[in-house]
Write a protein that binds this DNA or RNA. Structure first.
Lengths: 161, 161
DNA sequence: TTTCAATAGTTGAACAATCAACCTTATGAT
DNA sequence: ATCATAAGGTTGATTGTTCAACTATTGAAA
């Protein structure tokens, strides 16, 4: 007689998942709304600009951008085209690999990002960091790191922002 | 001489945010992919079906669905129309408030959900719950509950699933 | 009891994300 | 060298989401 592994979540586990899902949806929604109203930027677009800001002056390869933001290549391609047409990003082709392209921030991109950044920080401080007590900080970080690892995030591979 | 409140996140805070963001994107992406390949269902659609399953036989009002899933009313309306056209959900108008409508699962909807549910549970167990050690469970839950509260989630208001 | 504001939900147009097909350049095997 | 295969990225069509405008109903106030 073998013990079957139940396929459904226990009440406790389901409550954990639901709490996490609800918190995430509300937080991403709030970030998106606040970035839009203060700087006319969506959260995905903010994320890309922030990732480019943290990169070297050459910018980043499309594939690096895709990996660090957890976007598909196609999504990156469309998104960068839009950001380019807004004048916030520019594309250059890669000299050493002629298939590749780099994206980097323009001057206007830096300004746009500077405009959005305080709002981004404020929302995260108020709603996420403010909810993580001194006592829970280390534990929370440990969990999110592990979830990322378990899903194949490379170390030093942070979804930026 | 006053102490300025910095508008930017410290390195530690930024690392916490990025770890959380990366974990969330990867987890939602994995869930979406696995639900799609096993049952032809997106995560948002699964979420709606699961929420309806947990409701009374009458189903749920559009507004209840919207609130519990953290979707806009418009998004609910479009999504339910699609689920209806797949034959998984049906709409009935509310007898006591003639503005309102109820959505509820059809027989085919129950079957579709039954097909998706084990995969949903498995992904959450493997990647989320499996990353939350015994020691961190209580702390993690406390944090996500607080984030939800700080963003206006009503108690007993879980983003289902 | 009529009027006005608020609530529930839907719709169509605009916008963004996904998917599959594609082009180009690089790499590895023969 | 040549060929096949893979990798980097883009594109257009399809699908999903958002936004603003709208209809219908309700509830409250005058």
């Amino acid at each position: 007689m073998t013990t079957e592994v139940s396929t459904t979540l226990t009440g406790e586990d389901q409550a954990t998942w639901r709490s996490y899902l609800m918190a995430s949806r509300l937080l991403f929604e709030e970030l998106d709304r606040r970035l839009d109203s203060s700087a006319g930027l969506s959260l995905p677009d903010y994320t890309l600009l922030a990732r480019l800001r943290d990169a070297s002056d050459d910018g980043l390869r499309m594939s690096e951008l895709a990996e660090s933001a957890v976007f598909s290549r196609s999504r990156i391609s469309h998104a960068i085209r839009r950001l380019e047409s807004q004048g916030w990003v520019e594309r250059r082709s890669c000299p050493t690999d002629r298939r590749g392209s780099f994206a980097s921030l323009t001057e206007a991109g830096w300004e746009k990002l500077a405009q959005a950044e305080p709002v981004h920080s404020a929302v995260i401080k108020e709603h996420l960091l403010g909810s993580i007590g001194e006592a829970d900080a280390e534990s929370f970080r440990k969990v999110t790191d592990k979830v990322g690892q378990s899903l194949g995030a490379k170390p030093g591979d942070s979804a930026c922002g």
